[in-house]
Computed example of a mutant assay.
Amino acid sequence: MNAMYSSVFDFLLTAAPADSVSADFAADWARHRARSRDFASSLDRAAIAGFDSAGTGPAFLGGYQEALHALVPSLDPAELAAMCATEGAGARPSTMATVVNEAGVVDGTKSFATLGTFADRFLVIARSGTQPDGRAILRAVLVPAGASAAVTPLPALPFAPEIPHATVTFDAAPGELLPGDGYTDFLKPFRTIEDLHVVAAVLGQLVRVARLAQWPAEPVEQLLALFAAVRGVGAEDPGSPGVHIALGGVFDRLTALRTELDPLWTPVDPGVRERWERDAPLLGVAGKVRAARLATAWRTVA
């Protein structure tokens, strides 16, 4: 913990916000690491990344990176990473065509990799064989960026255009096989871990807005209370049905809180307000997947 602050809550309430608005994501990440190095929790660091972001796009990228480093602690903290799972037919194990052999050599194309154009290392989910029942065996592989990984930038999305996406094609790309199952130990938990870290970052960004615009104390308390809930959920097993149910409640509360905060945006800097309104759809990305996961979790505990 930073000696200047008793908790991350004190940091969010008293620190001067920085600005992560450049397209130099490596420089932004280095500044963020220096700024948050004394906070042990990746969720706390994600909130700080959001607090130091002038828009939802940079906040998302900070949360996304913290989530990947939480999922794979062996990643070099200085490196930018990109999850490579989605292919032309989606990210379902049954349709995944990218393959990896026993030596960790990867072949195939991933159609949508967030931050792919700036990644130092790719976390690739690839097929390594087939089980007797016909189901795919998946592995997770860390592949360094380089000549064996051809990166093609994709057009910017209409919301959060600061977030770069790319197609990545691996041609006999050497990588490091990670222990465990690529789906149950990496891809599936990452969906929950990413959700938690991105919400933490968005809440950190909203605390920034609240402080700069001098919002009343009560909405700031609500933002910090919801962040406390995120920290509590994040301390549990991301595969737990109860975690998915609690996370559903977090998203519901975030949706309601955004509506409650609408009247307070009037005095906010117009550029900040316009970016927030433009980027609001980002919070609904993967909503159908979350809804299906939540329904499955309720069936599990029924």
Results as ranks from 00 to 15, higher is better:
V8F: 01
A18M: 14
A18R: 15
A18P: 10
S20W: 11
A23V: 05
R31D: 15
H32T: 07
R33I: 10
R35G: 03
S36C: 14
D38M: 02
S41R: 01
A47Q: 00
G50S: 08
G57V: 04
P58L: 12
A59G: 07
G62L: 04
Q65T: 04
E66A: 10
A82T: 14
M83G: 11
A85H: 08
V99T: 15
A103C: 09
V106R: 06
T117G: 07
V124C: 08
V124H: 01
Q131R: 12
R139Q: 13
A156P: 03
P164H: 12
H165C: 09
V168C: 08
D181V: 11
T184E: 15
T184W: 13
L187N: 02
T192D: 10
H197N: 13
V198R: 05
L203T: 03
A213L: 06
W215I: 12
P219S: 07
Q222W: 11
R231T: 04
P238S: 12
P241R: 05
V243E: 01
L247R: 01
F251Y: 14
R253M: 05
R258W: 08
P263K: 09
L264D: 07
W265R: 06
V268N: 10
P270R: 02
P270K: 00
P270E: 11
L283G: 12
V285F: 11
V285S: 07
A286E: 10
A291L: 09
V301Q: 06
